[in-house]
Computed example of a mutant assay.
Amino acid sequence: MEPPSQLVDDIYEAGSVPEFWPRALEKLAATVDGAGAALFAVRADGLRSVATPSMLDLLREFDALGRPEINRRTPAAVAMRHPGFITEYDVFTEEELAVDPFYAEFLRPRGYGWCAGSAIFVPGGDTIVISVEKRLNLGPVSRDHVALLDRMRPHLARAAAFSARLALDRVRSATEALGLIGLPAAVLGDRQQLLSANALFEDLIPDVVRAHRARLMLADQGADRLLADAFARSLKRAGGGVQSIPIAAQEARPAMVAHLLPVRGVANDVFSAASGLLMLTPVVAGKGPPRQLLEGLFDLSPAEARVAGGLADGSTVEQLARLQGVSSETVRGHLKAVFAKTGTHRQSELVRLLAGPWHF
């Protein structure tokens, strides 16, 4: 049985326009009597997926269940590294399926219970898993249908790899655009490894940043600890957006602020190997920075920015309390938050960090 030519065309179209993947997956499922299909990217920060409407509902229900560990099917299939599609019976026995929580407690009560899936290893380190789900009352996926899916697999692999390349190129273009306005920037993968950088960022290697194979590091050890923590929180979607990290001045270089921007998206984000955009802003000495700039650079609240700016301009905690009409304890509370967000521990460190007009 040969793959339908229109389906092959749809798959390659989805490779160029990721928003078309649900339509291509719907047609793929229909050719083998499936109820729907899903495509997953298996990454360090979890699974990302794009799916047909019926599978999206099923995925949401499974996510709401809060028991990801019961899905032993996906990791087992990936570990097999089989260069084709497989079914349940290639992974489990009938007896194992009868008591497996994923099947017995989740899929079968919802009218599902048969599938054919394949793991595709694409350039860049990601693993793409394609799963076609079939209704329980229709019986297992036949060997003829598995053979048809195997004929489709090279097209699916090429289209998925192309989608992944396009997704990375989109983020790379952001670093080049930042370079045009004088900002060093780099794209980081899900293990904090360097994927791409503009020329300005590369000029900072190895004095300011160090591009080790395992992960990108900042030469300043204190700043590097803050970056690692910020990146970990970003992967867990707990970072609250842009996170800013101060980097102390060196003999030949001014102080800098590193900004970690999480890479987010919806359906087409499933293919992106990028997890973060790291941008470095140089600081040139002079008078203290404007309050609004402090808010943006270090994620300070307006009250925290007033305290930080006041100290940078030479005021004491007591003077700031009188000027603002609050207690000294209130100012010290804001100062404690400023220390945490700027990575400093003493007023003298904070004043040195914030000293002078800032030019970007």
Score class of each variant (00 low, 15 high):
Arg225Leu: 05
Arg306Cys: 00
Phe121Ala: 05
His334Ala: 02
Leu353Asp: 03
Val122Trp: 11
Leu107Pro: 01
Gly46Phe: 02
Ala219Arg: 12
Leu216Arg: 05
Ala185His: 04
Gly265Val: 12
Asn268Ser: 14
Leu136Val: 09
Leu350Ile: 09
Leu218Thr: 00
Arg158Trp: 07
Phe102Lys: 07
Asp203Lys: 06
Val283Thr: 13
Gly240Thr: 07
Gly296Arg: 11
His145Asp: 15
Met217Lys: 05
Leu58Glu: 07
Lys341Ser: 07
Met256Pro: 09
Ala232His: 09
Pro254Arg: 06
Ala249Lys: 08
Val263Arg: 11
Arg225Val: 02
His82Lys: 13
Asn137Ala: 13
Val270Gly: 02
Val50Trp: 05
Glu88Ser: 12
Phe271Met: 03
Pro290Phe: 04
Ile70Trp: 02
Arg151Ile: 01
Pro22Phe: 01
Gly276Phe: 09
Ser327Arg: 05
Ala64Asp: 10
Val331Pro: 06
Ser328Gly: 10
Leu353Ile: 04
Phe92Val: 13
Gln221Gly: 03
Leu311Glu: 01
Ala303Gln: 08
Phe20Gly: 08
Arg73Ser: 15
Asp224Tyr: 00
Arg170Gly: 12
Ala77Thr: 13
Ser5Leu: 12
Ser5Asn: 08
Val326Glu: 07
Ala98Ile: 12
Phe40Tyr: 15
Leu300Tyr: 14
Val141Glu: 15
Pro101Phe: 02
Asp100Trp: 01
Pro4Asn: 01
Ala116Met: 13
Lys341Asp: 10
Asn198His: 07
Gly325Phe: 08
Ser142Phe: 10
Ala159Ser: 13
Ala174Ile: 13
Lys134Glu: 10
Asp100Ser: 12
Met80Arg: 15
Pro53Phe: 01
Glu202Ile: 04
Glu329Asn: 06
Asn198Trp: 11
Asp126Pro: 03
Tyr12Lys: 05
Gly276Ile: 03
Ala199Arg: 10
Ser244Arg: 15
Phe162His: 15
Ala197Ser: 08
Ala177Glu: 01
Leu28Cys: 04
Leu136Asn: 04
Arg213Met: 10
Ala214Ser: 13
Leu149His: 06
Lys287Ile: 10
Val326Gln: 11
Arg135Phe: 09
Met152Ser: 02
Gly179Trp: 07
Arg110Asn: 09
Asp144Ser: 12
Leu195Met: 14
Glu96His: 03
Pro206Arg: 01
Leu320Gln: 09
Pro3Trp: 00
Pro289Val: 15
Glu133Phe: 05
Gly125Pro: 14
Ser196Asp: 15
Ile130Lys: 02
Gly296Cys: 00
Leu277Gln: 03
Gln221Ala: 11
Glu329Lys: 04
Leu278Ala: 06
Ala44Asn: 10
Ile128Gln: 06
Leu136Tyr: 12
Ile247Cys: 01
Val187Ala: 14
Ser348Met: 04
Ala249Ser: 13
Ser131Thr: 15
Ala308Asp: 03
Arg253Gly: 00
Asp90Gln: 08
His212Lys: 02
Leu166Lys: 08
Ser244Pro: 01
Asp144Tyr: 03
Phe62Met: 04
Ala44Pro: 12
His334Arg: 08
